[in-house]
Design a protein around this nucleic acid. Structure first.
Lengths: 353, 353
DNA sequence: GCACCTGGTGGGATCGCTCTCACCCGGTGT
DNA sequence: ACACCGGGTGAGAGCGATCCCACCAGGTGC
């Protein structure tokens, strides 16, 4: 691979154009009639630059359509102007979850006013995960947002030790006091959902729990439990799901087999609730007539099920946006105090309960 | 901001540790007892490196936990080892579409064996879009995959002119002969869907079309048309949607008002079909009894509607994976011929038709 | 014997930027 | 008169990698 873009040979390719050779700061400076230093200053915040010089540089930039070379800049500043979104998710199905898209959208929004790039790191297990960790530890990004964190990925510990600015979306496992995170009050959400079922007259209430190696799974389960205890009802009917529709369906089958007389289900995600609805329909149980169902998330799925799901609105986008902003603050502001931001999930009543 | 990471002053911060100072190639070389050049060669493909030297370097790398500094490398190679996923999507709702997550998953899979980073570029309209374009044009990435391309974003033209390796997911508008892309045979899919309705006995078949400034929207509409023509049926009942559930619902309302006697609907996406189903239910039309509905995509939504949707399976993940691989080939292989890869959408019969 | 490869090696030069530093200027304080 | 300051400026030294080139073995061909 020789550097044919700048060789003396005639340009190849259909268009017949030579590669334009991106303008450098040197060229901008020359054109503006100032030194490289001044041009650089004008570009980065323009302190101690005369209005005349500033204007000249601005003009040159516009004429040449100049963008600073990120690599060169990073090399000396030791910043990369990029942050990672880390998704330690071995299970590829979960990527299709709209939750994930919501996260992306929130973080993108937070990053929008800056010109920081978002790079995506899907950390699989084993060797791959190690590569990701090393990548993060060697400061190839200025910070990281971690979403869908599982207990055994150990990212909380690793990232905390590395002192890389990090924000978790969803409460991390370890080092909870020291690691920044945003979350939604999952336990409260689980309780609200369950209380709604109780108020609607259900007395034998099951739950389809999320993965119990994730804080969200655990907390929603705990909320369900505490509401039942308070009402003096049994918290026996629990089946584990994996936040997917198929998992929810399977869990429902197990629940119906073990506890045929349940009259309410709290599913820890809408996808699982949707799976539950289809199984219930197949078994001839009417919703909300025979069994009432409450989901969690309200990210689009909830409105397209039949019946539409009563669910808890999970403010993913706002939450991840907050995560992004928190990360920016940590990056620029250094080591200030860590105040987790907790969002509220609110009940959206539709037809399933 | 002084370089306190290496100052002689005692380290600050809770942990009391000095920032580890990422190892450099120089250090690796010294430890391995070879020159920087040899170490570099050992790292990059190890041609003309003695087994002894190679082993020494490998060991040093492992001991120091070394990762090459990307910025320094990029500066000289003029590659960035990153590619962009460009989403020229002004409408934030669409980001929540599982289609998008599928794309991401496919590209990530393609990039996985390399250590190329994926950076996300959400190009809004106006100034923002310009910034994105400039970013791409100045070669801050080695290539780009464009998804959800609209007619007026002009990305096809701009990127083609720039000669930046680019692959579109979904047929681009202009320069179609010259721009690499992968796509699903949308017209064929639209035809299959409509033929299925015809075979099922429908004679007054409507469509909810996608955005007509996107190839997918147009092509699926064309497929619907051609099947109807072939069968000698009317192609009058058309309403435009925007690939979202709400848009589908609104379109359905309009259809029912204008053509109350329709007995079949082909919706150009499952989300729109889901919207249609809820409106139909509200109007007391039974599906598939009174009206049969066929969707498009089969990305999870289709199974959680009631009734589950008959739809066309859109192989988004495979398709985007192919896009990723095609891009890699273009980046490394240079200007070889452009062969669009067209995937097949196949009919998945469920209960709605 | 000399030329000429071929595998292996190390010494710079270099990429495009930032940042420290020295310097220059005119205005102020003593 | 001098020192001093503060805005504005340019020269030059890196940042950490790659890569060209020079060089040194030892083998081969004539």
């Amino acid at each position: 691979m020789t550097d044919d873009a700048r060789s003396a040979a005639p340009a190849v390719g259909r268009s017949g154009l030579t590669m334009p050779h991106a303008p450098t700061l040197e060229e901008v400076a020359r054109r503006a009639g100032v030194s490289r230093s001044t041009a650089s200053r004008a570009i980065n915040g323009g302190l101690k630059v005369s209005p005349a010089a500033q204007a000249a540089v601005d003009a040159a930039i516009a004429e040449l359509n100049y963008t600073p070379n990120r690599a060169a800049r990073s090399l000396v500043t030791r910043r990369t102007d990029s942050v990672a979104l880390v998704v330690p998710e071995p299970d590829e199905r979960v990527l299709t979850d709209p939750y994930f898209a919501g996260t992306l959208q929130g973080i993108t929004a937070a990053l929008d006013p800056t010109d920081i790039q978002l790079v995506l790191l899907i950390a699989r297990r084993g060797e791959e995960a190690k590569r990701t960790t090393r990548y993060l530890l060697n400061r190839h990004v200025d910070g990281a947002v971690v979403v869908s964190h599982h207990r055994d990925d150990a990212l909380d510990q690793v990232l905390h030790d590395s002192r890389l600015p990090t924000v978790f979306v969803g409460r991390p496992w370890a080092a909870a006091g020291d690691v920044a995170f945003v979350d939604v009050d999952n336990e409260h959400g689980g309780r609200i959902a369950t209380e709604h079922l109780i108020k609607a007259g259900c007395t034998r209430i099951a739950t389809i729990a999320g993965p119990l190696d994730m804080a969200a799974g655990l907390d929603r389960l705990a909320g369900w439990r505490s509401a039942l205890h308070e009402a003096g009802l049994s918290d026996e009917a629990m089946a584990r799901g994996d936040f997917t529709s198929a998992g929810g369906a399977a869990a429902t089958e197990r629940l119906l087999a073990a506890y045929p007389d349940i009259d309410g289900i709290f599913a820890a995600s809408d996808l699982m609730a949707a799976g539950a609805l289809s199984v219930l329909a197949r078994h001839g149980r009417s919703v909300p007539g025979d069994i009432k169902v409450v989901g969690y998330d309200d990210l689009g799925v909830a409105t397209s099920t039949a019946p539409p799901l009563t669910t808890l609105r999970n403010p993913v986008v706002e939450m991840s946006r907050a995560a992004g902003e928190l990360l920016l603050a940590k990056i620029t502001g250094g080591d200030q105090e860590v105040v987790p931001r907790i969002f509220h999930a609110e009940l959206v009543v539709r037809e399933s309960a």
